[in-house]
Amino acid sequence: MTTATTHRRARGAATTRTGPVEARRPCPPRRLLGANLPYQLLTFAVFAVAWEAYATVWGGLLLPTFTETVGATFQLLGTAELWQAMYVSNQALVIGFAIAVVIGVPLGIVLGRFRALERFADVYLNILLVTPMAAIIPLLMMSVGFGLASRVILVAVFSIVMVVVNSRTGVRQVDPSLIEMARSFGATERQIWTRILFPGALPAIMTGIRLGVGRAVTGMVLVELLMVSAALGGLILEYRGLFRAPMLYGTIVIIVAEALLLISLARWGEHRLTRWSKATTARSTR
């Protein structure tokens, strides 16, 4: 017992200094270790090397090496075909996601405020959350056709659930005593919505928008792959058909890059708008 204690104390003394120590900023290497980026770059490098090695040894017609993919990506970025496809795809993304936000945020707030409504809505939200969306694509095609409308609808349906569920959670997290406080000062129902519920739910709404963006990109590509074979999805199918694997992978890389960019943008907006809320990043998706 005694030996163990002294042993531990001795070891502790060796690693952490006590007593007067001057406060100072961590030196640059230490600060670098604290950031996320170095780790992300490191894992990416490991991944790239492994890919390169695997593809060189076992690769074939459908598995290009990492360097081939990077080359193809840059080649693609120089073609008019890609930018045309990006334009067409993103039309559906922008319109569809805008609809999801415009409908989803108020719907979520209403559901959060009125618990009774939720009993009706909960089951449909769960259906939206778990249904394999691919299953409704044929239905959409039959009712709306192959045009922009059906792609827009699919993107909206895909992403709206995240927006609704998070807005609802956000409203529920608003401290009820704030509503009571507003009422005590004679706030009208309208003022309670605009001055208390909406700003209080904003951090969660922004989280919903960020998660929704990710789902919207998925929806955008999926509908093109399975339904209309247009734009980016069409490019993927085309390159697959021609066995041009590097170009196929290059297209996917570009789609992933776009999704990451949009999500970062949403996260940036989230932080800017809701600096008062420390729980922003820790908030759950449901």
Binding site: E180, M181, G200
Partner: peptide, 19 residues
Amino acid sequence: GPGPERSMVFQNFALLPWA
């Protein structure tokens, strides 16, 4: 209901965290 001649101070402060 609430009226202009009365105002209230709350135990948990009830301040708007964003304001």
